[in-house]
């Protein structure tokens, strides 16, 4: 889902950084200083889990875990995603620094949207159907946001953006299943985690 360096226009890059800075500001303000350690450790757990490749037929894919991050972290997802993507760029040389703003906006924005729409249903009722839909929606929203950023940079990217969205459908379905299984497990093993 990472958008590479050199593709996006100046306006989109600046807008991405503006949205990310605003999101990180609100996220940090809403995060209780006593909860910073918890946020950081949960961010590292999600970061590590998203690096694990799941075999699908002859190939493999790594999950994005957008919906679980949004549902568990809430507004803190913005600083957590920015920290994770920044570390990916600085420690492993993977992903870009200039597009960090847009990539954070795409991932954290969709996680936050999932939190806003499905957060209450999943956290309070532990609804598995809602968790599945949340998982699917998280990936598809991120693909749509990335597509919008590409299309705003140049109208020629519209077809590539459509391919990007279609290519993410299998990942979205898998992510939906993982989110539903995760919610079911947390409901049984640690219900306080969802409350």
């Amino acid at each position: 889902m990472h958008i590479s360096e050199g593709i996006l226009s100046g306006g989109v890059l600046i807008a991405g950084w503006a949205v990310t800075c605003a999101g990180v500001g609100v996220g940090l303000k809403r995060t209780d200083p006593a909860k910073i350690v918890r946020t950081a450790l949960l961010a590292s757990a999600f970061f590590l889990a998203s690096l694990v490749h799941v075999k699908i037929g002859p190939g493999s894919a790594h999950l994005l875990l957008i919906a679980p991050m949004g549902i568990i972290l809430g507004w803190a997802v913005f600083p957590a995603v920015l920290a994770a993507l920044m570390l990916q760029a600085l420690l492993f040389g993977f992903g870009g620094l200039l597009v960090l703003g847009v990539n954070t906006m795409v991932m954290a924005g969709s996680a936050l949207a999932v939190y806003g729409v499905f957060g209450r249903a999943v956290r309070e009722r532990g609804s598995l159907a809602m968790a599945f839909i949340a998982g699917v929606s998280g990936v598809m929203l991120a693909a749509v946001f990335a597509g919008i950023c590409l299309a705003l940079s140049d109208s020629g990217f519209v077809n590539a953006a459509k391919i990007l969205a279609v290519a993410h459908i299998p990942v979205a379905l898998i992510e939906g299943a993982v989110t539903a299984f995760l919610v079911a497990w947390l409901k049984k093993a640690a219900p306080e985690f969802l409350s």
């Binding site: 590590l48 889990a49 993982v178 995760l182 947390l186 093993a189 640690a190």
Partner: peptide
Amino acid sequence: MMRLKIFAYVLGSVLIRSANRSERMT
């Protein structure tokens, strides 16, 4: 489906472990 289920359960246990550890670190 079983692999996804296992992955979700492993992720869940790592999340709980990290939350418990974060309390001690705090």
